[in-house]
Structures are given as C-alpha cells and as structure tokens.
C-alpha cells in the first residue's frame, strides 16, 4: 500500500519544528510501524537527508523506549500495544498518518520524535525503591505474601515507563506512572516501612517536574500499553494524604 506520512521534524531543542510530508510506497501489511519508518529512513540517508530520529530498542513492547503520538493517539490505534508492536495491517492504501513526539514540558523534544524522559527517573530517585543493601536480605520465604496482593502488585509493576500516559493526558499529568510504582511497592509487605515517605516524596517530585494535575480523565489508562488501572491513582492519593496528615 502507499501512504502519506506527516512527521514532526525538529533539528534540536531550540528549533521550532514542523510537520513534514513524506510519501511512502509499497508498505507491506506485515511490517511493523517502526519497520515502515526504517524504510523511510534508509531512503532519506541515501538521499543525504537527515533520517527521522525516533527512540526504540527492544521492539517487543517491553523496554518502553518507543514513543510516538500517531494521529493524535499515544502509541497509535491498537489497544494495549506499544508503537513498536503496531503493525501496518491496521492501515489501508492511501491513508495519511500524522506522527508527533510526546508533548509535555517535562519531556522536552531532543530531536524529531525523541524526547527527554529523565523526569521519570528523577521521580523514581525520589523514592521509588525499597532500601536494601546487597547481601542484607532475609530468606525469601521469611515473609509470605498473599497471592492476591502479589498479583495486584505485579499488575502495577508492569509499567514500562514509556510516558504514553503523560502524552495522552489532557493535563499532562504523570499520575499513572507515579501511581503504578507507589502501588507496586505499597502493596507488598517489604514496601511498608517506606510507604508514606515514598508516596510523599514521589508525588512532590512529580509536581516539581512540572507535570499537570490529575483530573481522572482516564485517557492515560486507555493508551497505557500495559493497561495500568486508574485504581493505582486512588491508592497513590490515599497514601499521599495519609502521609501528609501524619507529618502535617
């Protein structure tokens, strides 16, 4: 099939950027979305042009590196799917596809479709861990964890840190990402000692980074490739409020 792409091109953080139109022919329905862009890039390189820069690595939907706003939807039209796992069979001949980077002040564009997501790392630095020096751990069976808690913690732990939630959120909020980690650790017995301080520190860091406030629009869950549920945000708020009340 033949497609028209409108791709956001921006040479660097200081450039204004613009949508550039490319025609691309003979796209196979079995190609992945990124493979389609690979083909475009090969052509651009040979023509001496700058290939479209985009983040990607594992290409199997787990590293969280790929990040594209495709026709106004984070990660594109298929539910629970990262950009790299989207395949061209979802498009038809003659379609026009608009491709943009994640947009949020805390995610500045580095180049083209590549953004800087280090704000997420800093949120984790603020408290997204359980403090346990190597070698000091008790036997793994010392503390049984009810299966249901372990499963629920797992559901939250599957977040791949892609940032689609922020990109899709009309408020540019990072609540789903932050809540996923707070929920994961907060549901486990090992996570209890630092539960309150963790929630406070992470929420405060999230605000400091300049993410917007959550109004529970649910746009985040809807595009989240791992389907992290909105409940996690309620948990985060509960932990946060409890911790704030305690320490005033």
């Amino acid at each position: 099939m033949n497609l028209t792409l409108k791709v956001w091109r921006q040479s660097g953080p200081d450039d204004d950027g613009r949508l550039v139109r490319y025609e691309i022919e003979d796209v196979s329905p079995d190609m992945s979305f990124l493979e389609m862009l690979d083909v475009l890039n090969e052509r651009l390189i040979l023509a001496g042009d700058d290939p479209v820069a985009f983040d990607h690595d594992c290409r199997e939907g787990i590293c969280g590196m790929c990040s594209m706003m495709i026709d106004g939807v984070a990660h594109g039209p298929q539910k629970n799917t990262t950009t790299c796992q989207l395949h061209m069979r979802h498009y038809k001949d003659g379609d026009t596809i608009v491709i943009e980077p994640w947009r949020a002040r805390p995610f500045p564009v580095v180049k083209d479709l590549v953004v800087d997501r280090s704000a997420f790392d800093r949120i984790i630095q603020a408290g997204g861990f359980i403090s346990v020096p190597a070698g000091s751990a008790p036997d793994a069976h010392a503390t049984p964890v009810p299966k249901l808690d372990a499963d629920a913690a797992f559901d939250a732990a599957t977040c791949i840190g892609c940032g689609a939630c922020v990109a899709a959120c009309p408020n540019g909020s990072a609540s789903l990402f932050t809540a996923a980690k707070i929920t994961h650790l907060g549901l486990l017995p090992q996570g209890q000692p630092e539960r309150g301080s963790r929630a406070r520190a992470m929420v405060e860091q999230m605000d400091e980074e300049g993410f917007g406030g959550c109004t529970n629009t649910g746009e985040c869950t809807a595009v989240c490739p791992k389907g992290i549920p909105l409940d996690t945000i309620a948990r985060m708020n509960a932990d946060y409020l409890r911790a704030s009340r305690k320490s005033g």
């Binding site: 409108k6 956001w8 949508l19 706003m69 026709d71 106004g72 939807v73 608009v98 943009e100 947009r103 949020a104 002040r105 805390p106 899709a168 009309p170 408020n171 540019g172 909020s173 300049g210 993410f211 917007g212 406030g213 629009t217 649910g218 746009e219 869950t221 809807a222 595009v223």
Partner: peptide, 18 residues
C-alpha cells in the same frame, strides 16, 4: 497547570481514547 505542562499542542487532533 495543564497548559503549563503542555506548552506545545499536538498538531493532529487528539483523539480521546477514554
């Protein structure tokens, strides 16, 4: 805050998924 968090808007119409 929302406006501040997204200084550059999307060019494509953002489609709601929720």
């Amino acid at each position: 805050r929302a406006a501040h968090a997204r200084p550059v808007k999307y060019a494509a119409k953002v489609r709601s998924r929720a």
